[in-house]
Design a protein around this nucleic acid. Structure first.
Length: 340
DNA sequence: TCAAGATCTTCCCAGATCGT
DNA sequence: ACGATCTGGGAAGATCTTGA
């Protein structure tokens, strides 16, 4: 029986209290709760494979970080229509990543909304093998920094305009060729800046490492959409195995745990999202949120077998979430630990 | 496209300096 | 004149820790 582990948990005695931090998640919004359950399920299934990979590599630190994500939001406490839990804040956690994305969007949107004529730029290098990926990321970054510094210096000397924008680093895994394609998504304040970046990038590119056709400029019509595009953050979880085929069936997608592990390893400690040419305006002080003592609460534990949090006393389900069958099938059958 | 806080680390910025 | 690189301060992204 899957619930045996819960059987020994005692009932909440009257007068028992529980301390939580922060605002908690609104339980009355079904969409939010279901989305949380879905993310938990996807992360739970994927991270187990990544733990295996880290273990096989005998990398204790990485394994521990993955375990943190495994435990993310596993034990919850609810009270007054709010649910509280701990966050792992890791990149590979789909729950924490969505929070981070939202925070970035909220912080940066007001700034970039004031840009004259935002343009979207993609700069790329040719795909590389696993062992080259970290070095490739660092090279793109350092070249990009040089370009930014050059124009910053011009502005300082009164002979030009500095570049202003935001950028994000990304790589997708190509399961056919077993390669990774590191690239930058960049949003700049105007067209001129976009053209400068592509020009400079092309000039500095090593012909054997960069296909010059890969660099693209696009005028931004829908700022929000493009901001989200920039903040997609890192790597695709679900990968279409036959890049050219573009199959429609959702369950034809595969999660390449080994590919993801490689990308996260290469990106470790590195900033994926960053700004250049400006700082955010000083923060408006938010009301300080003190800890809260709950006297009337329920405790929940995530039970993977039911893809939901279950009340430790009553076995009631928290999210009452039923994952769609194609997602269940995908998570059961389509997570690969190897590169093939 | 959300809500934990604290701490560690990366990397931006301005200004100085040097080489071409 | 211009670009590269260093420095120190600090912003903010990444990660760790805590938990009545």
């Amino acid at each position: 029986m899957i619930f045996n582990t819960l059987a020994e948990n005692g009932t909440n005695k009257l007068g028992q209290t529980y301390v939580v931090h922060g605002k908690g998640t609104d339980l009355t919004d079904l969409k939010v709760v279901h989305s949380r359950a879905k993310r938990k399920l996807i992360t739970h299934q994927t991270i187990l494979r990544m733990i295996d990979i880290a273990k096989a590599d005998e990398d204790k630190e990485r394994e521990k970080a993955y375990w943190n994500t495994y435990h993310c939001q596993s034990n919850l406490v609810s009270s007054n229509g709010k649910v509280y839990g701990n966050y792992c804040k890791n990149r590979y956690c789909t729950i924490c990543l969505s929070i981070r994305k939202a925070e970035i969007i909220n912080k940066y949107y007001p700034v970039i909304a004031n840009w004259d004529d935002p343009h979207f730029v993609t700069i790329t290098v040719k795909s590389c093998k696993e062992h080259q990926l970290r070095a490739y990321f660092k090279n793109i970054k350092s070249t990009f920094t040089k370009i930014v510094n050059k124009y910053k210096k011009r502005e300082q000397r009164g002979t030009g305009e500095k570049l202003i924008g935001i950028k994000s680093m990304e790589a997708n895994f190509n399961p056919n060729k077993k390669t990774y394609n590191p690239h930058f998504h960049i949003l700049v304040a105007n067209k001129n800046m976009a053209e400068i970046i592509v020009k400079e990038w092309s000039m500095r590119a090593k012909p054997n490492k960069v296909n010059l056709k890969g660099q693209k400029i696009k005028k931004v019509w829908d700022l929000e959409k493009n901001l989200i595009e920039i903040i997609k953050y890192g790597s695709k979880i679900f990968t279409e195995p036959h890049i050219k085929a573009k199959a429609k069936e959702t369950d034809s997608h595969i999660i390449y745990a080994k590919g993801l592990d490689t990308i996260f390893k290469a990106m470790k400690g590195q900033r994926i999202f960053d700004r250049f040419g400006f700082n955010l305006p000083p923060e408006i002080a938010e009301s300080i949120q003190s800890q809260k003592i709950l006297t009337n609460f329920k405790q929940w534990e995530y039970i993977p077998e039911v893809a939901d949090w279950v009340n430790v006393n009553s076995w009631e389900k928290l999210a009452d979430y039923t994952p769609p069958s194609h997602l269940v099938a995908l998570l059961d059958n389509n997570i690969n630990k190897t590169l093939s």
